Simulated scan of single mutants.
Amino acid sequence: MRLLHTMLRVGDLDASLHFYTQVLGMKLLRKQDFPTGKFTLAFVGYGEESDTAVIELTHNWETSSYELGNGYGHIALGVNDVYATCETIRAAGGKIVREAGPMMHGTTVIAFVEDPDGYKIELIGCE
């Protein structure tokens, strides 16, 4: 496994992109709109996603701001087989909160597990 990205919910995507790229010097690696889900994902980082962990900025079109504390989303881990990894985690007593399968607005296979404090960890198929 390796750390892929950390997701943050942002109220103003343009302002966030300016901050991360112009203020912090990251590169905009990719950006995609999901009209049926009414959200946009933008990935920023100092290196390519294949080499280093990055930040996923998620902009939900109908939400203009968040209270500090609920803006945190999840940590993502790349795994070879999401289904098998879920079974291994379940066998070890881990809690699966979203079973392995394609994401709702795409085809990438994902799952979510929850740590003892309730923080979510996304498993993403990287086969």
Score class of each variant (00 low, 15 high):
1 M>Q: 13
3 L>F: 15
4 L>W: 15
8 L>T: 09
10 V>N: 03
13 L>G: 00
15 A>H: 01
15 A>Q: 05
18 H>M: 10
23 V>I: 13
25 G>V: 06
26 M>N: 10
27 K>G: 11
27 K>H: 12
28 L>W: 01
29 L>C: 07
31 K>W: 03
35 P>Y: 09
35 P>I: 03
35 P>Q: 01
35 P>F: 06
39 F>C: 05
41 L>Q: 11
41 L>Y: 04
46 Y>R: 15
46 Y>N: 14
46 Y>A: 13
46 Y>K: 15
48 E>D: 15
49 E>Q: 04
49 E>T: 07
50 S>G: 15
52 T>F: 12
52 T>N: 13
53 A>L: 09
54 V>T: 14
55 I>R: 09
56 E>I: 02
57 L>E: 09
57 L>I: 08
57 L>T: 05
59 H>G: 05
59 H>W: 05
61 W>Y: 06
64 S>A: 13
64 S>P: 07
65 S>F: 09
66 Y>K: 02
68 L>I: 11
68 L>S: 12
69 G>P: 02
72 Y>Q: 06
72 Y>F: 10
73 G>I: 07
74 H>T: 03
80 N>I: 15
80 N>V: 14
82 V>C: 05
88 T>F: 06
91 A>F: 09
93 G>E: 04
93 G>V: 04
94 G>M: 02
95 K>I: 05
96 I>N: 04
99 E>A: 08
101 G>Q: 00
104 M>A: 09
107 T>H: 10
107 T>G: 08
107 T>Y: 11
107 T>L: 11
109 V>G: 10
111 A>F: 03
112 F>W: 05
113 V>I: 11
114 E>L: 02
116 P>L: 09
117 D>L: 10
117 D>C: 10
118 G>K: 00
121 I>D: 00
123 L>R: 02
123 L>V: 01
123 L>K: 01
123 L>F: 00
125 G>A: 14
126 C>T: 12
127 E>W: 10
